[in-house]
């Protein structure tokens, strides 16, 4: 294992250990907030495979989050299937949906790719909205059955921590494999990567499927955590929000989007407690990122570290 990877591994272990201690602090609110952050962190990490590693901006990533959520909720509740079947099936369905949509999207690049992801995303939203008999339409799919072992705050927290840790580890392995490295090459120069024999279309398609599948995992957790899924989860604003999370944390760092999710979600929840003008704050955050922090919080930290080390 390289030295940098070793450090990442031990820091990750330390973070997971610290997270394991959250329930011992005795605050129900903190447990809930951490659970929500973990779910959004996984959602943002999944998007980063597509944006940070393959350089494809998606405005419809919420679609796979919603497909994972609705599928898991429907299988658990309407069909009364056990979690061991429902959740994997929901994840597979998200992956299949991403494979289908991705097949068309990767034929395009740049703004056309982004617009097509938006179009498919809104299509999923429209289906969720109109298919009232199955999804509950505008009412949402409320009252999701969850197994007894996660039908309490503590059980669900540890379950989420386990699923998110395993998913993040898998994503890390994927992004740092030969596949991940080649993705970065495609991101940096698609034409040159093609010239050296990389099937860029297939590679981008695989990245699309990986991103959609892991978004489906986050969506399944979201549905079970809230005991409900709502059409708003598939709306383009949700895709926009996760994009801002990734931007805020830093697109070109593996853990950046997770950090961005933690910061943005905490700010959103915190600011909503004092003012209804969260969208204004969100706009200011976006401006700050674009004008002053193009590499996100991780980029800022790296710059600060480099400045201090030079000074020393």
């Amino acid at each position: 294992m390289q030295t940098g990877y070793k450090t990442t591994f031990w820091i990750s272990c330390a973070i997971v250990l610290l997270l394991l201690l959250v329930p011992t602090l005795g605050s129900k609110y903190l447990i809930d907030l951490t659970t929500e952050i973990l779910i959004y962190a996984l959602f943002a990490l999944s998007l980063n495979v597509l944006i940070g590693y393959s350089g494809n901006i998606s405005f419809g990533h919420a679609a796979y989050f919603a497909i994972g959520g609705y599928s898991c909720a429907i299988l658990l509740t309407t069909y009364e299937l056990p979690l061991i079947i429902s959740m994997p099936a929901a994840i597979i369905l998200s992956g299949l949906a991403a494979a289908f949509v991705g097949y068309f999207c990767v034929k395009l690049t740049d703004i056309y790719f982004a617009m097509l992801t938006l179009a498919f995303g809104m299509l999923v939203w429209a289906v969720a909205f109109k298919w009232r008999a199955v999804t509950g339409g505008d009412d949402g799919f409320v009252g999701v059955n969850v197994p007894a072992f996660i039908d309490n705050r503590y059980g669900f927290f540890y379950f989420t921590l386990f699923v998110v840790t395993v998913s993040a580890a898998l994503l890390w392995l994927i992004c740092h494999s030969a596949f991940g490295r080649t993705l970065v090459a495609v991101r940096e120069n698609r034409v040159r990567a093609g010239f050296v024999g990389v099937n860029t279309t297939r590679l981008r398609h695989t990245a699309f499927v990986v991103a959609g599948t892991f978004a489906g995992i986050a969506g399944s957790l979201f549905a079970m955590y809230n005991r409900g899924v709502y059409v708003e989860s598939a709306f383009w604003t949700e895709s926009g929000q996760v994009l801002i999370m990734a931007l805020l944390g830093g697109l070109y760092s593996f853990f950046g989007p997770a950090l961005g999710a933690a910061v943005l979600y905490t700010l959103q929840v915190g600011i909503n407690q004092y003012t209804e003008y969260w969208p204004v704050v969100l706009g200011i955050i976006l401006l700050i990122i674009l004008m002053f922090l193009p590499d996100g919080i991780i980029g800022l930290a790296q710059k600060l570290r480099s400045q201090f080390s030079r000074k020393a």
Partner: peptide
């Protein structure tokens, strides 16, 4: 840029802590 970003973060923290 760094200063502005840090100042922005500080302002947000103050905003969060105020008005409790």
């Amino acid at each position: 840029r760094t200063k502005v970003a840090v100042a922005g973060a500080a302002a947000l923290s103050v905003a969060l802590l105020s008005g409790m």
